[in-house]
Design a protein around this nucleic acid. Structure first.
Lengths: 147, 147
DNA sequence: AGTATTCCTATTTAGTTGGTAGGAAGGGTG
DNA sequence: CACCCTTCCTACCAACTAAATAGGAATACT
C-alpha cells in the first residue's frame, strides 16, 4: 500500500482538527471550535497552500465544515469516533487498491493469470478492515495512553 | 495498495512459467522445462524488453533459474506451492507498505499524529497475511476449478 | 468600506513509471 | 572455429503523476 503525501497530510490535518476542537481552552485556537488552516499547517509541518487544497477535498467529501471570514476555520462534521481512517483515505485518494491505476475489481486478466484478481480483492478487503475500524478518536486516545 | 505494472507483469510471468513447466508436453515450450522470455511475453501480452528486466530481478531474488543459449530459458527454483505472491512482490517492489516512498516502519510522526504509524503497520501486516499465504499453485488451481 | 480569511484555478517543478534500443557475454551446433 | 541463439546489462526517452507555488476571486465579520 502506498500512502501519498496527500493522504498522509489529510490524516494529520484531521487529527489536528479533532484535537484542537476537543480542547476548547487551547491557546492556539483562542477558545473557539474552528481551527484555522494556518495553525494546522504549522502544528504538523504541512505547506499551507498545499494543505488548503487537501482541506477542500475533505470538505467536499463531507468530513469537514468550513467557515470563512475573520473568525473562520475548519471543524469536523461528525465526532472523532465516527470518522474512520478509511473515510479520510477515500476522500483524498479514490480507490484504496488499484492495479496500474485502475481499480482492482475491474482488472482484466486472462489465461493463467485469471486468479490474480481475487488476490487483489482479498487484499483490498483486508486493508479496508483495518482502516475502517480505526477512528480518529482511537488514534488520539492512543497518544494519551502512550506518550 | 498500488500494484505497479512491474509487479503485475512479474506475477503473470511467474504464473506462466509455472504453468508451462507443469505441462511438459506443451507445444509452445517444445517439451523442455525451460521457458523462453519471448513466449512468456506473447502469452501474457507483456513488452519483451521490459519483461527481460523483470525476469532479471526475479532471478536475482532467487525465484527463477535461467539458462542462456539456443535451448535457454527460465524455470522456477522451487515448486509453485512454495512460492507466494508476497515473495514475487518483494522481489520486484521492495517494501509493501510505504508512506511517501519511505517504509512504513520508519515514518516520522510527531504530536497528535503519532498513532498513525501503528495503523500503517497494521495495514502492512494485514496485506502480508493475504499475499504470503497465497501461492502460485493456489492461483493455478483456482483457474482449473473455475475456468 | 476595509480587512481577514477561506476558496478555487492555473502553473511550475521534480520524480517515478512504463517502455525502448543496442550491444556484450555466454551457450549450443555445424 | 565460425555462426546463431538467448540471456544479460546499461543507458536512455517519453509520459505521467505527485508535490508545491502563486495569484486571484468570493465571503464574512468589524
Amino acid at each position: 500500500m502506498y500512502i501519498s503525501a496527500r493522504a498522509d497530510y489529510a490524516l494529520r490535518a484531521m487529527l489536528a482538527v479533532a484535537d484542537a476542537a476537543g480542547t476548547p481552552g487551547d491557546a492556539v485556537t483562542g477558545g473557539g471550535e474552528l481551527v484555522k488552516a494556518a495553525s494546522l499547517a504549522e502544528s504538523q509541518d504541512i505547506p499551507l497552500s498545499f494543505l488548503q487544497g487537501i482541506l477542500l477535498d475533505l470538505r467536499r467529501a463531507g468530513l469537514l465544515h468550513s467557515h470563512r471570514g475573520t473568525e473562520g476555520g475548519y471543524a469536523l462534521t461528525r465526532p472523532p469516533d465516527e470518522i474512520s481512517v478509511g473515510d479520510v483515505l477515500r476522500a483524498v485518494g479514490g480507490a484504496i487498491t488499484s492495479v496500474r491505476g485502475i481499480p482492482a475489481d475491474r482488472a482484466g486478466y486472462h489465461g493463467v493469470a485469471t486468479g490474480l484478481r481475487d488476490v487483489w480483492l482479498a487484499v483490498d478487503g483486508a486493508i479496508a478492515l483495518v482502516v475502517d475500524r480505526t477512528t480518529l478518536a482511537d488514534l488520539l486516545s492512543d497518544r494519551a495512553t502512550a506518550p
